[in-house]
Structure formats: structure tokens, C-alpha cells
Amino acid sequence: MAIAALSSGVTGLNAAERALGNSAHAIANIGTQGFQPQQATFAENTPAGTGVSISTRGQELLKVDAPSATNLATETTNSLVYKAQFNLSAKVVQAADQNIGTLINIKA
């Protein structure tokens, strides 16, 4: 059980990190003409309870003279959500690590 929680926490950390990087990339390109940011989508792995994965919808360049399609308010909000997801996943990993340590100590 603790190993599964550890694995779920790690996949959550990885997905939140990728999403945060995606959002940072969009913010960094806010002044780039024709930039269309990618959209991060989270999905539960199968079987259920084994973690989370992330996919990003590919970016397409708009007309070169069009302004960037990045919405700063949306990307800032997304960044805060992804940071919270990362912190919660880190807590899952920490709890799983403590449970594993307890199991090892009990058997010793």
C-alpha cells in the first residue's frame, strides 16, 4: 500500500512539474507574435489509483502579425494551482516514506 502511494505521489510530482513548466513557457512567450500556448490536461492512470499523467495539446502558430494568445491571468492562476498540486503530491510522498520506514522498523 505504501509503495503504491509513493508511486502515485511521484507521478503527481512529475505531472505538476510538467504543467508548471508549460505555464511558465506560455508566460515567457507572452510578447511573442502569433504564439499559441499549449493546454495541459491531467488524466488518472489505469488502473485507478496508480497515479496521474499529463498531456499537452500541441501549439500552433497564429498569423505572424497576430498578438500572443497567452492570457496572463489564466496562466498565473494555473501556476498557483500546479504549485498546490506539487506541494500536495510531495506530502503524499512524505507520508508514504514515513509509512515505509515504520514498516521496516516493525520488522526489524
Score class of each variant (00 low, 15 high):
53 S>I: 00
32 T>Q: 05
62 L>V: 14
43 A>Q: 15
35 F>G: 07
49 G>M: 01
45 N>W: 01
71 N>M: 08
49 G>R: 05
36 Q>I: 06
58 G>P: 12
50 T>A: 03
43 A>R: 12
52 V>A: 00
47 P>Y: 01
61 L>V: 12
74 T>W: 01
37 P>H: 04
77 T>V: 11
47 P>K: 04
48 A>Y: 04
34 G>E: 03
64 V>W: 05
64 V>N: 13
44 E>Q: 13
39 Q>D: 07
40 A>Q: 11
55 S>F: 05
48 A>Q: 15
59 Q>K: 08
62 L>E: 13
82 Y>W: 00
62 L>W: 05
55 S>L: 07
39 Q>V: 10
78 N>H: 13
31 G>L: 08
31 G>K: 06
55 S>N: 12
71 N>C: 04
46 T>M: 06
76 T>H: 08
58 G>H: 03
49 G>I: 02
30 I>R: 13
65 D>C: 02
85 Q>G: 09
51 G>H: 05
65 D>V: 13
76 T>W: 03
35 F>S: 04
50 T>F: 00
64 V>G: 09
80 L>P: 06
51 G>P: 13
43 A>K: 10
86 F>P: 00
45 N>K: 15
34 G>S: 04
39 Q>M: 14
49 G>V: 09
66 A>F: 12
59 Q>R: 03
84 A>F: 09
74 T>N: 12
85 Q>P: 09
86 F>Y: 06
83 K>P: 05
67 P>C: 01
70 T>F: 07
60 E>R: 09
75 E>D: 14
34 G>D: 07
83 K>H: 03
58 G>E: 14
44 E>V: 01
65 D>M: 11
57 R>Y: 11
38 Q>V: 03
75 E>Q: 14
30 I>P: 07
55 S>H: 07
42 F>D: 12
33 Q>V: 10
45 N>P: 04
68 S>A: 06
65 D>F: 08
69 A>C: 02
68 S>C: 00
79 S>R: 02
54 I>T: 02
65 D>K: 12
42 F>V: 09
78 N>M: 08
65 D>S: 15
63 K>L: 11
35 F>T: 06
40 A>Y: 13
